[in-house]
Design a protein around this nucleic acid. Structure first.
Length: 804
RNA sequence: GCUGGUGUGGUGGAAUAGGCAGACACAAGGGACUUAAAAUCCCUCGGACUAAUAAUCCGUACCGGUUCAAGUCCGGUCACCAGCACCA
């Protein structure tokens, strides 16, 4: 009686679809559970076996929640704007809309073959005008609140994609997508002021349940530091302001460094004796990309400004000013005070240029030999009115003094920069703004949304870096909504991150024409209860979408300050050789082949059994057979089925423990050990020789979230009751039955195991020791020795410590 | 370089709050069934010493420490993975 997975899986998938059993209901009386996976980008390659890992994991949770009586929302959609589609379209002269449609069809078919319980009635697509209408609407609100603005700036320019990239999209100096060189270019760009939310994006991490490493990464990315600004005065009389986190070390500042782009250089050009040399250095620095400039912590370069010096305000000492590219114009004030005794970079620079090094915090080694940076617990020295204070107190005192003198102030700085939001591409949401000579940038009226992408013949980006839309003169030329005069449409489009920054809201009410979702739906479904995704999205998508959500919260559109109550992340599935799966490495496994050969249930079980969910794991074609064997063994339980309406006493322990273990493990994303527990249970049952209807019913329900098809089939053919999805409840366990009456414990003498004895769980300590000592081996080991100590850890271990 | 993580049999991985290391699988070897193969079922499976599934010893990357007891805690070293890249 071999199990025919093809027949059974097709049968149940049809039943589920016909009955719409996975559609979330709007019954707000029921408790809701909203599970979310990162919606896929429908690429031309189709699915590989890595995709279903998170889908299956949250499907397991979603199915369990339904059995527990929740109203579950588990939706899916398509993050379909993006470069690969556009590039494919250019190459093959097919409209990206058509390519997208084909890719989605393929993805959908593949995902459906896995029996994931998505609510397909809520499927969304970011490239659908009914969807991006609201992406554009959110942009307009950002614009109206001054959070979207246009700025001339140095941008990262991918030489191959001919497109501006966000800092976050540049990896090691090359384009994250295509790996081509990235250079700098000045362009006018739309920016989103994410920095306005920096503090809240850090602080509100306290409200959510994210893994610690995700929180840490977001905090580091935002990079808040608390310090002070100090105004130095140059010998020219100009004010030169620096940012420092260590204002306590001001007495140790022996020189200053400004970035090559600092505006004072131009101002001082006629006073600088070596202006030619400085100019040459500026040119050198501008030629380098950020990558080259920061590539290695290599030799510090720099030029001393001759003719201008600065005055250290605490002791009125004249100190030299250098220009060096290790100081970044984009962070702080673009100028630093250098304290070589307590900063490694300053120390290296001082050594190279032979500058004085003054120790101002005691406790380190020789400041002339190495910088003493880890000095939080040190005591100030050589520092006038700060002498004898701790670093902490000295900071406070210095800020107080600077403020009094009017030459400094406390200041918070962030590494986070504003989000470059424009893309010079076709396949993205048009930015709903026009430019009028008279009125400037004017938003188009909300009634005109969606502003649809026009049909064009060619999607080739222009060599000048304008969007392909720039060639559409009919579309560009329009009238100003403000004055009625001539105006031009914005030709840039939005980045792919736009549509994915709010998609989880649309699922709550996907067909609404009046709002991005109704108030009622937002009230009921917010927040997402459990969001699973990849670690690679921690600093991009996760941060961007939290930012948008907070903005919508401020507008009163959404009811919660945070979008996701809980976040987990999955490890990648690697190729058989332990390398990342990719076409070029030739190690891609297509889930279609696995489903065909072993069935969706086996595929799902293996995806969850493959290893720790949070860690990467290599695909193993032979290990999957173990999961198929387990499926077959479960199927064959019907051969040893007997009648019975209660769990039999002999199996009570095994079943109660399994119910507890499987339930707990699913909640703790330990799917691999949940399945191991079910395998152990089948071993117990098989060894026992029979299973009754009640027991098989419980087994099937426990296994159902992992293997939904075969469990329904067993339920039906063995007449165990109405269908699992239709009628059954997640089983309860009896805590008292999870503990065995007697357990085997190990007996150690001086920490070495000498014997194993069976004792009652509630046995008295004295009894246990007596029993332990009656064992031959133990007796031999303690014979003639003095017992120093006896330890009994209930139900676990006995240790007898002896000395001669 | 900094930050975070990881390191356990031939392989993937278990091990709750410091308490029997190797659960559950895969692969391998042996056996049963079979004309044969597949499938299935049973047995063995970290290493050393062994006739032995008797006893003993070693063993969770490496070195040291705390403890009656360490894969787990502490200090140091090494390797790998991820993120960040001079952030003042």
């Amino acid at each position: 009686m071999r199990y025919d997975h093809k027949k059974v899986e097709a049968k149940w998938q049809k039943i589920w679809e016909d009955k719409g059993v996975f559609h979330a209901s709007e019954d707000t009386a029921k408790e809701k559970f909203y599970a979310l996976i990162e919606f896929p980008y429908p690429s031309g390659q189709g699915l590989h076996v890595g995709h279903p890992r998170p889908y299956t994991a949250l499907d397991t949770v979603a199915r369990k929640r339904r059995l527990q009586g929740y109203n579950v929302l588990y939706p899916i959609g398509w993050d379909a704007f993006g470069l690969p589609t556009e590039n494919y379209a250019i190459k093959n002269h097919i409209h990206p809309e058509i390519v997208t449609k084909q890719n989605i069809e393929r993805f959908k078919k593949q995902i459906q073959s896995l029996g994931i319980s998505f609510d397909w009635s809520r499927e969304i697509n970011t490239t659908d005008p009914d969807y991006y209408k609201w992406t554009q609407w959110i942009f307009l609100q950002l614009f109206k609140k001054g959070l979207a603005y246009k700025k001339e700036m140095n941008v990262n320019w991918c030489t191959s994609c001919k497109c501006v990239l966000a800092n976050e999209e540049v990896v090691n100096g090359v384009c994250e997508r295509c790996g081509s060189e990235v250079i700098h270019k000045v362009k006018s760009q739309w920016m989103l002021k994410i920095t306005a939310y920096a503090d809240r994006l850090i602080n509100d991490l306290d409200l959510v349940n994210y893994p610690p490493r995700v929180k840490a990464q977001q905090k580091n990315w935002i990079g808040r530091s608390t310090g002070a600004e100090v105004d130095f005065t140059a010998t020219t009389g100009d004010k030169l302001t620096v940012y420092t986190t260590r204002c306590d070390t001001l007495f140790g500042a022996t020189y200053m460094v400004i970035s090559p782009e600092h505006p004072l250089i131009e101002k001082w050009s006629d006073k600088l004796e070596n202006i030619e040399e400085v100019r040459a250095y500026q040119i050198e620095a501008s030629k380098k990309s950020d990558f080259e400039r920061t590539e290695v912590a290599k030799d510090k370069t720099g030029i001393r400004l001759n003719g201008v010096e600065a005055i250290n305000p605490v002791n009125n000492t004249k100190i030299p000013i250098f220009v060096s590219d290790y100081v970044l114009v984009s962070y702080g004030t673009g100028a630093i005070m250098a304290v070589p005794a307590h900063d490694t970079r300053d120390w290296e620079f001082a050594k190279k240029f032979n500058l004085p090094i003054i120790e101002v915090v005691k406790g380190g080694k020789d400041a002339q030999k190495e910088a003493f940076t880890d000095c939080a617990s040190g005591i100030l020295t050589n520092s006038g009115f700060l002498n004898g204070l701790s670093v902490e107190d000295a900071k406070a005192k210095m800020i107080e003094w600077l403020t009094e003198q009017g030459i400094g102030r406390a200041k918070v700085n962030y590494k986070l920069r504003d989000w470059v939001f424009s893309r010079q591409r076709y396949w993205g949401e048009p930015i709903p703004i026009v430019h009028c000579e008279k009125c400037g940038f004017v938003p188009i009226p909300e009634s005109e949304l969606p502003l649809k992408l026009p049909m064009v013949d060619s999607y080739e980006p222009t060599d000048t870096g304008e969007s392909p839309l720039a060639k559409m003169t009919d579309w560009i030329n329009t009238t100003c909504p403000c004055c009625g005069g001539k105006a031009l449409r914005e030709t840039d489009t939005m980045p792919q991150w736009a549509g994915s920054s709010w998609y989880f809201l649309r699922y709550m009410d996907p067909h609404n024409n009046e709002a991005l979702a109704s108030k009622e739906a937002l009230e009921y479904w917010s927040p997402v209860d459990w969001y699973n995704g990849g670690m690679e999205h921690t600093t991009l998508h996760l941060l961007y979408s939290r930012f948008w959500h907070k903005f919508l919260y401020d507008l009163g559109v959404v009811p919660t300050p945070e979008p996701y109550a809980k976040r987990t992340s999955h490890g990648m599935i690697l190729g058989e050789n332990g390398e990342k799966m990719s076409k070029s490495r030739g190690n891609v496994v297509n889930p279609d082949d696995i489903v065909e050969e072993y069935g969706a249930d086996t595929m799902r079980l293996y995806e969850m059994f493959i290893g720790d969910f949070e860690k990467a794991a290599p695909w193993s074609p032979s290990s999957i057979r173990g999961c198929r064997r387990f499926v077959e063994r479960f199927w064959n339980l019907q051969n040893i089925l007997v009648d019975g309406e209660k769990i039999r006493p002999e199996l009570e322990g095994a079943f109660n423990k399994a119910i507890k273990k499987v339930g707990d493990d699913i909640e703790n994303i330990k799917f691999n050990t949940a399945i191991a527990a079910l395998m152990a249970l089948i071993n117990d049952v098989t060894a026992f020789g029979s299973i009754n209807k009640k027991e098989l019913g419980i087994f099937a329900i426990l296994l159902n979230p992992f293997a939904p098809h075969i469990t329904e089939e067993i339920f039906e053919i063995c007449s165990l009751g109405d269908g699992i999805v239709a009628e059954q409840k997640w089983p309860e366990y009896d805590e008292s039955k999870c503990v065995d009456e007697t357990t085997e414990i190990a007996v150690q003498v001086n920490g070495k195991i000498k014997a194993k004895i069976n004792v009652a769980v509630d046995a008295q300590q004295d009894e246990v020791f007596k029993l332990a000592k009656s064992d031959d081996n133990v007796a031999k080991a303690i014979d003639g020795m003095n017992i120093v100590k006896e330890i009994y850890v209930k139900g676990r271990i006995v240790n007898i410590v002896v000395k001669p």
